[in-house]
Nucleic acid binder design. Structure first.
Lengths: 227, 227
DNA sequence: ACATTTCTGTTGTTACAACAACATAAGGAG
DNA sequence: CTCCTTATGTTGTTGTAACAACAGAAATGT
């Protein structure tokens, strides 16, 4: 694994190559390769290492108490996973991490990451701050999903999600990063019911849909909030 | 505000009183008092300060796009709020923070908290690590709520929530920290429908309920997972 | 003790989301 | 191009959750 790869990742951003070289020893980095479908972290385990995908992709999966499996996220090169669990000792994983294909994963021990560095190197604390930023962003994403799924109706969830996308992208016309099935999963609704609701909303003139391109039409609903 | 109060809070845990005294200058702490119902942070604003409740309680509220208000959380003395927003610059608040009663709030500027301290004081980095721990814990709580609300049925959500509580408290008999209405809000379901479902489950012999005391009866459903 | 308010459970009605099953469209591989 | 696969939309049925309205219980205040 190349250090030049690491310094471009969000976790190591802002750290110089030579700093990383000197830091490498005290971080106890371990790299491990996995074949497709191999389990990297299993739900119920407790972990001490943050995982960073170096090559390939890993899936974050959740098995509910009836055994239904659902894919929550796909993590690609440079991105990290399980950092919240690794930072809270003794917290059992609610999710499993599985190799989506052949892949390579770097493990970073949080004890070594968080402990006071005897060399008092500034990059250590830079790393912790990067981690805090990443955790905070994930936090906001989780909160946002909770808000978008708090409405009891499919239409409510859609309007909540779509109006956020519009605001976020600064236009009434915008692309969403999900397929219909993924959007249904994100909003925790049935896919066909979602398609159906989108059709209805189009017939009522609330919006226009073309594949992943959505346009919210001015019905006064979203504009009148400024009053 | 007493420094002896601060060192007992999760954010300042592990920091010595004399360290805190020397750190006080570079943290730019500001304390402010609010009267009941005063808005501390308003949804849509961007913030740079973590809030810590010193006295009283504050409410974390969410207004959906139709103006329905819901209370998400109540934060008491020693606890912090809005830290995820303060750590991700330019992220508009999805929630408002309102004084639940007369209260006093301490504001901690994240720029000063996160910047490299010229005095290279170790407590600074201790503070950041505490913050990371808090953020990670909140992360897990948010994830957990998403899992508990991902089932499409009320019964599914209840079983998910209750079986976690049982596992977490290490007993089939346990107390939950919510009233019926709060539990309904947490699971995003209607309160009366929730009561109804609990009755049904009792009639079916799945569990016993007495106020906030729940007992999951051995029906094989929850035990058979170990296979 | 009483009155008042809040909390919880119950019932019946209604709306709507899930589900199944199918139709159509779009993409990809040969 | 044709075949095959996947993605998306459509329809009808069924179950169930929301909702409204109320009753009883519990908590709170006077």
């Amino acid at each position: 694994m190349e250090l030049s790869f690491l310094i471009k990742t969000p976790l190591f951003r802002g750290i110089l190559l030579q700093e990383l070289e000197s830091m490498q020893a005290c971080l106890h980095l371990k790299e491990k390769k996995y074949k497709k479908n191999e389990v990297i972290y299993r739900a119920g385990d407790t972990v001490n290492d943050i995982g960073m995908v170096v090559q390939g992709n890993v899936s974050i999966e959740h098995d509910d108490i009836w055994g239904n499996k659902s894919i929550l996220d796909t993590v690609g090169p440079g991105q990290i996973f399980a950092e919240a669990y690794a930072c809270v000792p003794e917290s059992p994983l609610m999710i499993s991490v599985v190799a989506a294909g052949d892949c390579s994963v770097l493990f970073i021990n949080t004890a070594h990451l968080l402990q006071f560095c005897s060399k008092a190197c500034s990059c250590h604390s830079k790393l912790v701050r990067n981690l805090l930023t990443i955790a905070s962003q994930k936090n906001l994403n989780l909160s946002r999903r909770i808000f978008h799924t708090s409405s009891k109706s499919i239409r409510g969830r859609l309007l909540s999600y779509l109006s956020f996308q519009a605001a976020s992208q600064g236009s009434h016309s915008f692309l969403i990063p999900y397929s219909r099935q993924q959007l249904a999963d994100y909003l925790s609704v049935d896919r066909s019911a979602l398609s159906n609701e989108l059709s209805k909303m189009q017939k009522e003139g609330l919006l226009r849909v073309n594949k992943n391109q959505f346009t919210i039409l001015d019905t006064g609903i979203l504009e009148s909030e400024e009053i």
